[in-house]
C-alpha cells in the first residue's frame, strides 16, 4: 500500500515503513539504543530526503524510548538520579551541538562531517565493545569469576554522590561530561546518542549492564525530544505521516525487544550490539571510499 508523505513529498510503501520502525524498535528495547544510527541511513536508502529522515527519525526515537523505558521502570532497572545527571550535561551539549552544526553548515561540507563522525565513532565504539565482550564471554566460559574494575577516575574526583540503583558512589563530574559530549554528538549526527552513551556508562562509569539500558533510554527521550522540537521549529523537516508509521512499528518493536533482552545474557547482548555498530560503520566507510556511480548530486538551497 503506497502512501504519500506530506513533508517529504514522496510516495512510499506503508508496510515497509512499519517494518523499519518495528526492526529499529526491537533493537532499541534490546540494547537501550534509540536506533537513530540505524534508522536514519535506512530511511536515506528508501529515498526519504536526508534532512527529513534525520528530523523524523528523532521523533520516532522519542516514542520507542518511552515505550522501552516504561518496561524498564517497572523492573526497577532505571537509575533516575544518574539519568538526570547525564541529562543535565546532555541538554547543554545538544544546544552547543546545534550551534556547532549551524556553523559548520555555513562552511559547507556538513554531510562529510556527519558521515565521518559516524564512521569514526561507530568504528571505535564497535571495535572496543567487541573486544571487551568477547573477553568477558571467554572468562565466563572458563568459569572464572568476572572481575569488574571497581575503581576508576570517577571514584577519585570530588562532588561524590551515591547512585543507589547502580550501586555506585562516584563523582558527578564524569557523568555530566559524558552527557555533554553525547549531547554534542547527537545534535551533529541527528541521533539520540544511545550507542555512545551505553558503552560510556559501562566502561567509564562502570555501571551494571542491566541498569545501563533503562537509564540510557531515559535520557535519550529528552535529548531526542529536544532535537525533534528544534528541527520542527527551525527547519520544518519533521514529517508527521512518516513519523506515525515509524512510531506504530517502533513502539511494538520496543516491547518485543525488551522481552528478548531479558532472555539473553548481558555479554551476548553486547557482542550483538558491537557487531551491529561495526556493520553500520563499515557500510558508511565503504560509501566514502568507493567511487559512486553518479558523482553529481542535487541539493536545495
Amino acid at each position: 500500500m503506497q502512501i504519500y508523505l506530506p513533508i517529504a513529498e514522496v510516495s512510499v510503501n506503508a508496510f515497509l515503513l512499519l517494518g523499519l520502525g518495528g526492526l529499529v524498535g526491537v533493537l532499541s528495547g534490546m540494547f537501550g539504543v534509540g536506533g537513530g544510527f540505524l534508522l536514519t541511513p535506512l530511511l536515506f536508502f528508501i529515498g526519504i530526503p536526508p534532512a527529513i529522515a534525520v528530523a523524523t527519525g528523532t521523533n520516532q526515537v522519542v516514542a520507542s524510548s518511552i515505550s522501552g523505558v516504561l518496561a524498564h521502570l517497572r523492573r526497577g532497572t532505571v537509575d533516575l538520579k544518574m539519568g538526570t545527571v547525564l541529562l543535565s550535561g546532555g541538554l547543554v551539549g545538544a544546544f552547543a551541538g546545534v550551534r556547532l552544526f549551524a556553523y559548520l553548515q555555513s562552511l559547507g561540507q556538513v554531510d562529510l562531517l556527519v558521515t565521518l563522525s559516524y564512521v569514526v565513532f561507530l568504528g571505535i565504539i564497535g571495535g572496543l565493545m567487541l573486544i571487551e565482550s568477547v573477553r568477558a564471554l571467554m572468562r565466563s566460559r572458563s568459569n572464572a569469576v568476572p572481575k569488574r574494575r571497581k575503581h576508576g577516575i570517577a571514584h577519585v574526583l570530588p562532588f561524590k554522590s551515591r547512585f543507589r540503583t547502580s550501586g555506585l558512589y562516584i563523582s558527578v563530574i564524569p557523568p555530566v561530561i559524558v552527557g555533554f559530549f553525547v549531547g554534542v554528538l547527537s545534535a551533529i549526527m541527528g541521533v539520540g546518542g544511545g550507542f555512545i552513551m551505553v558503552p560510556a556508562m559501562i566502561y567509564i562509569l562502570h555501571m551494571p549492564t542491566k541498569v545501563v539500558i533503562g537509564t540510557s533510554l531515559f535520557q535519550i527521550i529528552f535529548v531526542a525530544a529536544f532535537t525533534t522540537l528544534m528541527h520542527a521549529w527551525e527547519n520544518h523537516t519533521v514529517d508527521l505521516g512518516l513519523a506515525v508509521l515509524l512510531i506504530v512499528g517502533g513502539v511494538v518493536g520496543a516491547q518485543v525487544g525488551t522481552r528478548i533482552g531479558m532472555r539473553i545474557k548481558a555479554e551476548q547482548t553486547r557482542i550483538l550490539l558491537a557487531l551491529l555498530v561495526l556493520g553500520v560503520c563499515l557500510n558508511l566507510a565503504f560509501g566514502l571510499l568507493v567511487e559512486p556511480s553518479e558523482i553529481y548530486s542535487l541539493g536545495n538551497e
Binding site: 521523533n59 520516532q60 518511552i66 522540537l229 520542527a232 508527521l240 512510531i247 506504530v248
Partner: peptide, 8 residues
C-alpha cells in the same frame, strides 16, 4: 509530533 510520540 512529540505528543503523538509520547502517547504512542
Amino acid at each position: 509530533s512529540l505528543a503523538i510520540a509520547i502517547a504512542a
